[in-house]
């Protein structure tokens, strides 16, 4: 078998399901303040979708979607978003201040203040970080085989 990755059946199913998994992950991140979930679980789901892609099609295809360099930059960007939101609180006087008005109305999307923004940062960080760690471990193994 010269082609990288798994069989046609697996590839077809992965092709269909990856986008759905990604969508589900984004939903978990975006609704983290209302339903069970949040930045970390959603990020893990998004990262797992990329890992699935990598397993089914081989690492070249997955790396074409997201290279290690861009993964590294997005990884830091996610963390900086979180830190930036925390620092924004200084404008209103306190570090980590939840500065948006209209907080605490259950079952309304934008009533959690800065928590959705933090969740987006965390989701970005976690998803890219998991994918990056997975890719790093895969690349290690390849380097060993060449020896």
């Amino acid at each position: 078998m010269n082609k990288p990755g798994m069989t046609l059946i697996v590839k077809t199913i992965v092709r269909i399901s990856t986008s759905l998994i990604l969508l589900y992950g984004v939903y978990i991140v975006a609704y983290g303040q209302l339903t069970p979930g949040g930045g970390f679980p959603g990020g893990v789901i998004i990262g797992a979708a990329f890992i699935l892609l990598c397993l089914a099609f081989g690492k070249e295809v997955a790396l074409k979607k997201m290279s290690t360099a861009s993964a590294s930059i997005l990884d830091s960007a996610g963390a900086l978003i979180f830190l930036g939101v925390a620092l924004l609180g200084y404008i209103w006087g306190t570090f980590f201040l939840n500065f948006f008005p209209n907080k605490g109305i259950p079952f309304h999307l934008w009533t959690a203040g800065i928590i959705p923004l933090c969740n987006i940062g965390i989701g970005l960080k976690v998803s890219v970080c998991l994918f990056g760690a997975f890719i790093a471990l895969v690349l290690f193994r390849v380097a060993k085989k060449e020896n």
Binding site: A133, A136, L137, F140, R141, A143, K144, N147
Partner: peptide
Amino acid sequence: TILMVAIAIRLYD
């Protein structure tokens, strides 16, 4: 755990 696995792989190398 990820760090441990990474270092274990390098040690195996």
